[in-house]
Amino acid sequence: MNKKNLREEIILRSGVNPKKCMKCGKCSATCPAYDEMEYHPHQFVNMVDTGDIEPLLNSDSLYKCLTCFACVDRCPRGVEPAKLVEAVRLSVIRKQGENHLTANDIPALLDDETPQQLLVSAFRKYTK
């Protein structure tokens, strides 16, 4: 998929208009996963907007977002960065063999108290 099409695809899928961003950085200010990320929420918005999406596709940052929606609720312009992160992630994991989590990974993660919810959520986020 060429650069332009991927940008449009991500914008359509997420329903996010990155042009609304006024570059205040409040999303990155409030993000609880900031330190784990190579690209931070405000950079996601800018990179999708400018079509510089390739680095995002290859970055682990896609898997660090907690979908906690702090950036969505606190953005003064209603940009909803978390939805962009998810749309970019789907561009990767929807491809054959690109699942970020597989059933084989599970046993190592389990303990006596692990709630089903944890595994179900993780699969939904990391696997297609």
């Binding site: 570059k23 205040c24 950085g25 999303c27 990155s28 200010a29 409030t30 931070h40 702090a70």
Partner: peptide, 23 residues
């Protein structure tokens, strides 16, 4: 940059913010 969250804890205010120039 913007401040994203302020957490009062004991007698300090923990300010979490972004510095966009230093990323």
């Amino acid at each position: 940059g913007m401040v994203g969250k302020i957490v009062p804890e004991g007698d300090v205010l923990k300010v979490q913010a972004s510095d966009l120039i230093s990323n």
